[in-house]
Each structure stands twice: as C-alpha cells, then as structure tokens.
Computed example of a mutant assay.
Amino acid sequence: MDNHSNSSEITFHHEFDREAGRKEVVKVTVILSVITLIELALGFWLISLEGDFFRLLVKGVICVLMLAKAFYIVAYFMHLKHEIRAMIMTIVVPLLLFIWFIVAFLYDGNSYKNLKNTYDPYHYEQSQIKVEKTEHAPAHGAEEHKDAKKEGTME
C-alpha cells in the first residue's frame, strides 16, 4: 500500500532556475530605480511650477508612481506575486482598509477644523477683538520711550 495516497498535505515541487530569478530581480530593481528617478525629477520640477492645476496634476502623477512602486515592492520583495490569490487578498485587503482609515481621519479632522471655525460663536468675536487691539495699541515700548524722553533720562 502506498503511504502517499492517504496524505492530506498538498505539496508542489517547484523547479528553481537561478538565472531566471536573477533576471527577474534585476528587472524589478531597474523598474523601481527608473520610477524613483522620475519621481525625483517631477519633485524638483514641482518646486518651480506655477499654477494650481499643474501642481495638483504633478502631485497626482507622483502619487500614482508611488503606488506602482508599492505594488512592485509588495509583489516581488514580499514574494506575494507567486502566492495563491487567497493569501494575497488576506494581506492586501487589510492594507487597503488601513489606507482608507488614514484618508477618512484626515478628511474628518479637516472637516472638524472648518466646522469649529464656522459654528463657534466666539470665533468671529475673538478675531474682531484681536484686530481692534492691534489697531489701537501703541507700538511696543512706545509709552516707555515717551516717558523717558519727558524725564530727560534718555540719551
């Protein structure tokens, strides 16, 4: 009787070709390097770029390139490209939820800041008091300067 036929474990024998593995690593390294150089060039160009639309467009392109780099890093260096689909989804879906949490918290924080300034009844009043104080207040040290000049103690 054959012992292997009753085994519940499924194993696969993979042939490992060192040359193919080496070529794949070199290819991925070159792709990541090129994407990084493009990101850097766009970042330096962004400094001198005028216009809000073009700045946002370049920032969006940089974000897309960053996501492409993240895909290559996860797929090749975390060895997920060669895994079964269920294993990939087990890792990627929680990661996407984490990214969604970050975006949601940033949006909520910005919304809270804007609503706080809008609905705070003392916000407008306090800002008007600060404006009035700065308009009517003498320059810093002006009173002491006048008093010293009257007394003749100033040189």
Rank of each mutant, 00 (worst) to 15 (best):
Ile47Glu: 07
Ile47Met: 08
Ser48Gln: 11
Ser48Glu: 10
Ser48Arg: 10
Ser48Asn: 10
Ser48Ala: 14
Ser48Lys: 05
Leu49Trp: 04
Glu50Pro: 00
Arg55Asn: 03
Leu57Trp: 05
Val58Lys: 02
Lys59Trp: 03
Lys59Pro: 00
Gly60Ala: 04
Ile62Asp: 01
Ile62His: 01
Met66Pro: 00
Leu67Glu: 12
Leu67Gln: 07
Lys69Ala: 12
Lys69Arg: 15
Lys69Val: 01
Lys69Phe: 04
Ala70Met: 15
Phe71Arg: 06
Phe71Trp: 08
Tyr72Ala: 00
Ile73Asp: 09
Val74Asn: 01
Ala75His: 03
Tyr76Thr: 00
His79Phe: 10
Leu80Trp: 05
Leu80Gln: 10
His82Lys: 12
Glu83Gly: 08
Glu83Gln: 13
Glu83Ala: 15
Ile84Arg: 14
Arg85His: 08
Ala86Phe: 13
Ile88Cys: 06
Met89Ala: 09
Met89Leu: 11
Met89Pro: 05
Ile91Ser: 12
Ile91Val: 15
Ile91Thr: 13
Ile91Leu: 15
Val92Gly: 04
Leu96Asn: 13
Ile99Gln: 05
Ile102Asp: 04
Val103Asp: 06
Val103Cys: 09
Ala104Gly: 09
Leu106Thr: 03
Leu106Glu: 08
Tyr107Ile: 07
Tyr107Leu: 08
Gly109Gln: 02
Asn110Met: 11
Tyr112Ser: 02
Tyr112Asp: 03
Lys113Glu: 13
Lys113Arg: 15
Asn114Leu: 09
Leu115Gly: 02
Lys116Asn: 07
Lys116Val: 05
Thr118Phe: 08
Tyr119Ser: 06
Asp120Ala: 06
His123Ser: 10
Tyr124Ile: 09
Gln126Tyr: 14
Ser127Asn: 11
Gln128Tyr: 05
Gln128Pro: 00
Lys130Asp: 04
Glu132Asp: 04
Glu132Ala: 03
Thr134Asp: 06
Thr134Pro: 00
Thr134Asn: 06
Glu135Met: 14
His136Lys: 15
His136Gln: 15
Ala137Lys: 15
Ala137Trp: 11
Pro138Ser: 14
His140Asp: 12
His140Leu: 13
